[in-house]
């Protein structure tokens, strides 16, 4: 085997580049599925893409699926019932064109709810999911006032028979968790996206905004999309297409 001195050094350099510089510090981090014992990182940013043109008027599949998955039940009092996702109807005042679209927590990069929380209960995970730590939430509802999307709800009454997916109880604020229990299991979907696909609409896509090969990133790269209230510069993780 004849390897020249120059070739030998070259092979060594290539090998070293891919190898760890120090334990836990790699030159090239690969976004691989993490194990149960690994913390989430900012290598991913989870988000949703909602195609408003595919959202059917009168359909509530995503709302029902979300509330079933997370054990959000109604007390028959719509004013105070918790709502993680809602179907909003918007009408163009000039043309009269009516559009339906689901609105939930927009999982902002700079979430106002986190800014105002006095206890640190409202927080953003490293992978971009905005959550409420109900262990430290005092139920002041400041985050509800700060959220421009009205995405959060307060639980007014005792809760029984909670879902195993989402612990929830009286006196705390809650909102869409982007199905964090599924994300942590390594599943690449949310209850709303699954339900929408099952209805045949495929108006909601879930995925990693930072992975250029993901369906959501490719869809965002190929067609124009918008944020709700882009003027607030919140850089939302939930994006919309086909908004008129």
């Amino acid at each position: 085997m004849s390897v020249s001195r120059r070739e030998f050094i070259g092979i060594g350099a290539v090998g070293a580049a891919g190898v760890a510089l120090a334990p836990g510090l790699n030159l090239i981090e690969l976004a691989t599925a993490r194990s149960d014992s690994e913390a989430v990182t900012s290598l991913q940013r989870w988000g949703l893409l909602i195609d408003a043109t595919k959202c059917a008027d009168g359909c509530s599949a995503c709302v029902d699926a979300c509330h079933t998955e997370n054990g959000v039940s109604s007390h028959g009092r719509p004013e105070t019932d918790a709502q993680w996702i809602r179907a909003a109807k918007v009408r163009d005042l000039d043309t009269g064109y009516v559009q339906t679209l689901p609105i939930m927590c927009q999982h902002c990069e700079h979430p106002p709810c986190v800014d105002v929380c006095p206890t640190g209960a409202s927080f953003k995970r490293a992978d971009g999911i905005v959550l409420v730590d109900k262990h430290i939430c005092i139920g002041c509802r400041y985050c509800m006032m700060a959220c421009p999307y009205k995405a959060r709800s307060f639980i007014h009454e005792d809760v029984t028979d909670q879902s195993h997916n989402a612990p929830r109880g009286k006196g705390t604020v809650e909102s869409c968790t982007l199905c964090v229990h599924r994300v942590d299991r390594g599943e690449n979907s949310t209850a709303c996206a699954d339900a929408c696909a099952a209805e045949g609409h495929r108006a909601i896509i879930f995925g990693d905004l930072k992975d250029p090969n993901s369906e959501i990133a490719q869809a965002l790269a190929s067609k124009p999309s918008s944020q709700l209230r882009p003027d607030l510069d919140l850089n939302t993780g939930v994006r919309y297409q086909g908004l008129s």
Binding site: S37, D127, H135, V183
Partner: peptide
């Protein structure tokens, strides 16, 4: 609970 809620560690 803190590791689970904030870091997604679900051992």
């Amino acid at each position: 609970r803190d590791r689970t809620v904030h870091e997604g560690i679900r051992t």
